[in-house]
Amino acid sequence: MSRQFYDDFADALRSGDHEAARPYLERPGHAARLAVYCNNVASSAIEALRAAYPVVNALTGARFFSPMAKAFWQSGPPRTRSLTGYGSGFADFVDGYQPARTLPYLADIARLDRAWLEAHLAADASPCRPGQMAQLPPDRIAALNPGLHPSARLLCLAWPVHGIWQRHRSGRSEARRVTLAPKAQGVLVWRPFGDVRSVVLDPGSVRFIASLDEGQSLAEASEDALIQHAGFDPARAFEAALTGGYLSGDALP
Protein backbone atom coordinates (compact mmCIF):
# COMPACT_ATOMS: atom_id res chain seq x y z
CA MET A 1 0.00 0.00 0.00
CA SER A 2 1.38 3.37 -0.97
CA ARG A 3 2.09 6.52 0.97
CA GLN A 4 -1.17 7.78 -0.52
CA PHE A 5 -3.09 5.45 1.82
CA TYR A 6 -1.58 7.05 4.90
CA ASP A 7 -2.09 10.57 3.52
CA ASP A 8 -5.73 9.93 2.69
CA PHE A 9 -6.38 8.21 6.00
CA ALA A 10 -4.80 11.14 7.85
CA ASP A 11 -7.04 13.55 5.92
CA ALA A 12 -10.08 11.56 7.00
CA LEU A 13 -8.95 11.72 10.63
CA ARG A 14 -8.33 15.46 10.54
CA SER A 15 -11.60 16.35 8.86
CA GLY A 16 -13.72 13.70 10.54
CA ASP A 17 -15.08 12.89 7.07
CA HIS A 18 -14.21 9.26 6.41
CA GLU A 19 -15.01 9.37 2.67
CA ALA A 20 -11.31 9.94 1.86
CA ALA A 21 -10.48 6.54 3.36
CA ARG A 22 -13.40 4.60 1.86
CA PRO A 23 -11.55 3.48 -1.31
CA TYR A 24 -9.08 1.54 0.84
CA LEU A 25 -11.71 -0.64 2.48
CA GLU A 26 -12.28 -4.19 1.33
CA ARG A 27 -15.98 -3.61 2.00
CA PRO A 28 -16.95 0.01 1.19
CA GLY A 29 -20.13 -0.58 3.19
CA HIS A 30 -17.99 -0.55 6.31
CA ALA A 31 -17.02 3.12 5.83
CA ALA A 32 -19.18 4.17 8.79
CA ARG A 33 -16.90 2.10 11.00
CA LEU A 34 -14.05 4.49 10.29
CA ALA A 35 -15.82 6.87 12.63
CA VAL A 36 -14.26 4.83 15.46
CA TYR A 37 -10.80 6.07 14.48
CA CYS A 38 -11.93 9.63 13.78
CA ASN A 39 -13.68 9.79 17.16
CA ASN A 40 -10.77 8.26 19.07
CA VAL A 41 -8.20 10.63 17.63
CA ALA A 42 -10.30 13.75 18.22
CA SER A 43 -11.53 12.74 21.66
CA SER A 44 -8.02 11.80 22.87
CA ALA A 45 -6.88 15.32 22.04
CA ILE A 46 -10.02 16.95 23.48
CA GLU A 47 -9.82 15.01 26.76
CA ALA A 48 -6.11 15.78 27.10
CA LEU A 49 -6.93 19.50 26.72
CA ARG A 50 -9.80 19.23 29.20
CA ALA A 51 -7.44 17.69 31.76
CA ALA A 52 -4.79 20.32 31.03
CA TYR A 53 -7.23 23.28 31.24
CA PRO A 54 -9.59 22.26 34.05
CA VAL A 55 -10.64 25.77 35.07
CA VAL A 56 -11.37 26.83 31.47
CA ASN A 57 -13.52 23.70 31.25
CA ALA A 58 -15.22 24.40 34.58
CA LEU A 59 -16.04 28.02 33.70
CA THR A 60 -17.33 27.34 30.19
CA GLY A 61 -18.86 23.90 30.71
CA ALA A 62 -18.00 20.70 28.86
CA ARG A 63 -20.42 21.44 26.00
CA PHE A 64 -18.68 24.72 25.21
CA PHE A 65 -15.19 23.40 25.87
CA SER A 66 -15.35 20.31 23.60
CA PRO A 67 -15.91 22.07 20.25
CA MET A 68 -13.36 24.74 21.21
CA ALA A 69 -10.78 22.03 22.00
CA LYS A 70 -11.61 20.20 18.78
CA ALA A 71 -11.11 23.38 16.73
CA PHE A 72 -7.77 23.92 18.46
CA TRP A 73 -6.70 20.33 17.70
CA GLN A 74 -7.68 20.73 14.04
CA SER A 75 -5.57 23.88 13.80
CA GLY A 76 -2.61 22.36 15.68
CA PRO A 77 -2.47 18.59 16.22
CA PRO A 78 0.16 17.08 18.57
CA ARG A 79 3.64 17.17 17.07
CA THR A 80 5.27 15.06 19.75
CA ARG A 81 4.39 11.46 20.63
CA SER A 82 2.67 12.36 23.86
CA LEU A 83 -0.33 14.32 25.05
CA THR A 84 1.56 15.24 28.23
CA GLY A 85 2.08 18.96 27.80
CA TYR A 86 -0.04 19.16 24.62
CA GLY A 87 -1.77 22.49 24.01
CA SER A 88 0.89 25.12 24.62
CA GLY A 89 -0.82 27.58 22.26
CA PHE A 90 -4.32 27.08 23.65
CA ALA A 91 -4.56 30.42 25.50
CA ASP A 92 -3.78 32.42 22.36
CA PHE A 93 -6.24 30.27 20.44
CA VAL A 94 -8.94 30.99 23.04
CA ASP A 95 -8.19 34.70 22.66
CA GLY A 96 -9.16 34.53 18.99
CA TYR A 97 -11.98 31.98 19.30
CA GLN A 98 -15.11 33.79 18.13
CA PRO A 99 -17.68 31.98 20.32
CA ALA A 100 -15.62 32.96 23.40
CA ARG A 101 -15.52 36.69 22.58
CA THR A 102 -18.02 37.46 25.35
CA LEU A 103 -15.54 35.98 27.84
CA PRO A 104 -12.49 38.20 27.22
CA TYR A 105 -10.77 37.04 30.44
CA LEU A 106 -10.93 33.35 29.43
CA ALA A 107 -7.51 33.38 27.75
CA ASP A 108 -5.94 34.55 31.02
CA ILE A 109 -7.61 31.65 32.83
CA ALA A 110 -6.05 29.37 30.19
CA ARG A 111 -2.64 31.00 30.83
CA LEU A 112 -2.95 30.17 34.53
CA ASP A 113 -4.00 26.58 33.80
CA ARG A 114 -1.04 26.25 31.43
CA ALA A 115 1.42 27.70 33.94
CA TRP A 116 0.15 25.25 36.55
CA LEU A 117 0.68 22.32 34.16
CA GLU A 118 4.17 23.44 33.15
CA ALA A 119 5.17 23.92 36.79
CA HIS A 120 3.73 20.50 37.60
CA LEU A 121 5.76 18.78 34.85
CA ALA A 122 9.00 20.76 35.28
CA ALA A 123 12.29 19.20 36.33
CA ASP A 124 12.64 18.42 40.03
CA ALA A 125 15.10 20.79 41.69
CA SER A 126 15.86 22.13 45.14
CA PRO A 127 15.15 25.83 45.42
CA CYS A 128 17.57 28.22 47.08
CA ARG A 129 16.90 28.15 50.84
CA PRO A 130 17.28 31.03 53.30
CA GLY A 131 20.01 29.13 55.19
CA GLN A 132 22.23 28.98 52.09
CA MET A 133 22.39 32.78 52.00
CA ALA A 134 22.89 33.29 55.72
CA GLN A 135 26.63 32.61 55.58
CA LEU A 136 27.35 35.14 52.83
CA PRO A 137 28.34 38.80 53.30
CA PRO A 138 25.72 41.22 51.90
CA ASP A 139 27.82 42.38 48.94
CA ARG A 140 28.30 38.77 47.83
CA ILE A 141 24.56 38.19 48.02
CA ALA A 142 23.85 41.34 45.99
CA ALA A 143 26.19 40.12 43.25
CA LEU A 144 24.51 36.69 42.94
CA ASN A 145 22.36 35.97 39.93
CA PRO A 146 20.51 32.86 41.05
CA GLY A 147 17.87 32.75 38.32
CA LEU A 148 14.46 31.23 38.90
CA HIS A 149 13.55 27.71 39.95
CA PRO A 150 12.98 25.59 36.78
CA SER A 151 9.27 25.30 37.55
CA ALA A 152 8.68 29.07 37.90
CA ARG A 153 6.31 30.72 35.38
CA LEU A 154 5.79 34.47 35.55
CA LEU A 155 2.52 35.76 34.08
CA CYS A 156 1.42 39.31 33.31
CA LEU A 157 -2.32 39.00 32.91
CA ALA A 158 -4.67 41.59 31.40
CA TRP A 159 -7.51 40.55 33.71
CA PRO A 160 -7.30 40.08 37.51
CA VAL A 161 -8.53 36.49 37.45
CA HIS A 162 -6.10 34.76 39.80
CA GLY A 163 -8.61 34.64 42.68
CA ILE A 164 -11.35 33.09 40.55
CA TRP A 165 -8.88 30.63 39.04
CA GLN A 166 -7.45 29.63 42.40
CA ARG A 167 -10.88 29.01 43.93
CA HIS A 168 -11.78 26.66 41.07
CA ARG A 169 -8.40 25.00 41.15
CA SER A 170 -8.70 24.19 44.83
CA GLY A 171 -12.33 23.11 44.54
CA ARG A 172 -13.57 26.01 46.71
CA SER A 173 -15.57 27.70 44.00
CA GLU A 174 -19.20 28.62 44.54
CA ALA A 175 -21.60 29.77 41.87
CA ARG A 176 -21.82 33.53 42.09
CA ARG A 177 -21.76 36.49 39.79
CA VAL A 178 -18.42 38.27 39.66
CA THR A 179 -17.88 41.67 38.09
CA LEU A 180 -14.55 41.92 36.33
CA ALA A 181 -12.83 44.90 34.77
CA PRO A 182 -9.56 44.64 32.87
CA LYS A 183 -6.59 45.42 35.14
CA ALA A 184 -3.04 44.12 34.89
CA GLN A 185 -2.19 41.36 37.34
CA GLY A 186 1.21 39.76 37.87
CA VAL A 187 1.21 36.13 38.98
CA LEU A 188 3.96 33.67 39.74
CA VAL A 189 3.24 29.95 39.49
CA TRP A 190 5.88 27.48 40.66
CA ARG A 191 6.49 24.12 42.35
CA PRO A 192 9.24 24.48 44.95
CA PHE A 193 8.68 21.04 46.50
CA GLY A 194 5.75 18.66 45.95
CA ASP A 195 2.83 20.95 45.16
CA VAL A 196 2.28 23.75 42.68
CA ARG A 197 1.82 27.16 44.31
CA SER A 198 0.83 30.56 42.96
CA VAL A 199 0.94 34.13 44.23
CA VAL A 200 -0.18 37.56 43.03
CA LEU A 201 2.73 40.00 42.76
CA ASP A 202 2.96 43.78 43.04
CA PRO A 203 4.30 45.45 39.86
CA GLY A 204 7.76 46.00 41.35
CA SER A 205 8.09 42.31 42.21
CA VAL A 206 7.04 41.39 38.66
CA ARG A 207 9.91 43.53 37.34
CA PHE A 208 12.31 42.12 39.96
CA ILE A 209 11.48 38.47 39.14
CA ALA A 210 11.49 39.08 35.38
CA SER A 211 15.00 40.58 35.70
CA LEU A 212 16.24 37.61 37.73
CA ASP A 213 14.78 35.32 35.09
CA GLU A 214 16.82 37.19 32.47
CA GLY A 215 19.97 36.43 34.47
CA GLN A 216 20.51 39.74 36.23
CA SER A 217 22.05 39.88 39.70
CA LEU A 218 19.95 40.53 42.79
CA ALA A 219 21.39 44.08 42.97
CA GLU A 220 20.63 44.81 39.31
CA ALA A 221 17.15 43.34 39.54
CA SER A 222 16.37 45.39 42.67
CA GLU A 223 17.65 48.58 41.11
CA ASP A 224 15.71 47.98 37.93
CA ALA A 225 12.48 47.40 39.88
CA LEU A 226 13.07 50.49 42.05
CA ILE A 227 13.59 52.75 39.04
CA GLN A 228 10.28 51.72 37.56
CA HIS A 229 8.29 51.34 40.78
CA ALA A 230 9.26 53.77 43.53
CA GLY A 231 7.29 51.87 46.17
CA PHE A 232 9.17 48.61 45.56
CA ASP A 233 10.71 47.07 48.70
CA PRO A 234 13.77 45.01 47.65
CA ALA A 235 14.32 43.46 51.10
CA ARG A 236 10.75 42.21 51.27
CA ALA A 237 10.81 40.89 47.70
CA PHE A 238 14.06 39.05 48.34
CA GLU A 239 12.70 37.60 51.58
CA ALA A 240 9.55 36.43 49.75
CA ALA A 241 11.63 34.80 47.00
CA LEU A 242 13.72 32.91 49.54
CA THR A 243 10.94 31.72 51.81
CA GLY A 244 8.68 30.97 48.82
CA GLY A 245 11.45 28.94 47.21
CA TYR A 246 11.27 30.39 43.71
CA LEU A 247 14.96 31.10 43.27
CA SER A 248 17.11 28.39 41.73
CA GLY A 249 19.26 26.44 44.17
CA ASP A 250 21.97 26.05 41.50
CA ALA A 251 24.86 28.44 40.99
CA LEU A 252 25.19 29.19 44.68
CA PRO A 253 28.57 28.95 46.35
Partner: peptide, 22 residues
Protein backbone atom coordinates in the same frame (compact mmCIF):
# COMPACT_ATOMS: atom_id res chain seq x y z
CA UNK B 1 -0.52 -0.12 14.32
CA UNK B 2 0.41 3.29 13.00
CA UNK B 3 -0.32 6.70 14.53
CA UNK B 4 2.04 9.24 13.00
CA UNK B 5 2.66 10.77 9.61
CA UNK B 6 5.52 13.21 9.25
CA UNK B 7 5.65 15.07 12.53
CA UNK B 8 1.92 14.86 13.27
CA UNK B 9 0.76 12.33 15.84
CA UNK B 10 -2.77 10.91 15.77
CA UNK B 11 -3.39 9.59 19.28
CA UNK B 12 -4.99 6.26 18.35
CA UNK B 13 -3.96 2.84 17.01
CA UNK B 14 -4.66 2.98 13.28
CA UNK B 15 -5.02 -0.02 10.96
CA UNK B 16 -1.96 -1.25 9.07
CA UNK B 17 -2.54 -2.69 5.61
CA UNK B 18 -1.31 -6.28 5.94
CA UNK B 19 0.63 -6.43 2.70
CA UNK B 20 4.15 -7.53 1.87
CA UNK B 21 5.27 -3.90 1.53
CA UNK B 22 3.81 -3.00 4.91
Amino acid sequence: AWSALGDVWFPDLLPVPMTQTA
